[in-house]
Design a binder for these strands. Structure first.
Lengths: 119, 119
DNA sequence: AAATAATTAAACCAATCGGTTGACAATCCA
DNA sequence: TGGATTGTCAACCGATTGGTTTAATTATTT
């Protein structure tokens, strides 16, 4: 159905893969508050620096996070563009979860038109 | 940030994992046209039936597809509710990719109010 | 009853996953 | 200078991934 515009969404593999892990989703949640260092990202999960570092690399690779090295700390910032891409992909299916609403609206419109004709 | 409402989205691991594979996303695209059997889902990918069967099981496990066995064929139907869940999760970040639009709107509103006061 | 078609099950494969540990490098501070 | 802090790298672990092949199951057709 939508396959003619497939190449628009080249990063979806990496983005959805990154989002499939609850630790990484939580990290994004924290980064939505403010920029955080690797250490700050690690502590809420009682996870080693190296573990957190790997998760951040996955997020970075998906383009969901950018890193600024300042001194010995690495500041991570949420990068939302790829989230918007994923959302755009999902919204192509919007009509499937809006179908009931859509048909209800169509029904109401039809009734309105019937009313208008009566007048 | 959003972590107080985390348990609302219990299926996100499975859903995002299912969406992370391009074959499965394409299958969903085909299922958006009409219901399809496992064999019909398999053929466009020059993949064994067993391979396609595994992908469908992943989609089923994520709640994105339901299966109706009729005779010896298994008819698969797109189930959009979980897509809507994933979309709802993503939209919590909407303001991050709308920030420029938001501030533009705020600016315009402020100008409108200034105009209104002049009159 | 026999042949064919649609699908799953099971075993296997190399690659990747999420996580650890330990060693190392760079930076800051006293 | 020397010690603490921040982070990466490499190696390793068991589990899972996406895929195959072969065999078995179930349903239809002839």
């Amino acid at each position: 159905m939508f396959n003619h515009m497939v190449e628009q969404f080249a990063h979806l593999d990496a983005v959805f893969h990154a989002l499939a892990d609850p630790t990484r989703r939580a990290m994004l949640g924290h980064l939505a508050e403010r920029e955080l260092t690797i250490g700050e990202l690690a502590t809420p999960f009682s996870m080693s620096f190296a573990g957190a570092s790997k998760h951040v690399r996955v997020l970075e690779h998906a383009g969901l996070v950018t890193r600024t090295i300042r001194g010995r700390t690495h500041l991570c910032r949420l990068q939302a563009a790829r989230l918007a891409e994923a959302d755009a992909w999902l919204r192509r299916y919007e009509r499937f979860w809006n179908d009931r609403l859509d048909s209800l609206e169509a029904l109401l419109r039809a009734e309105d038109e019937a009313q208008a004709k009566k007048k």
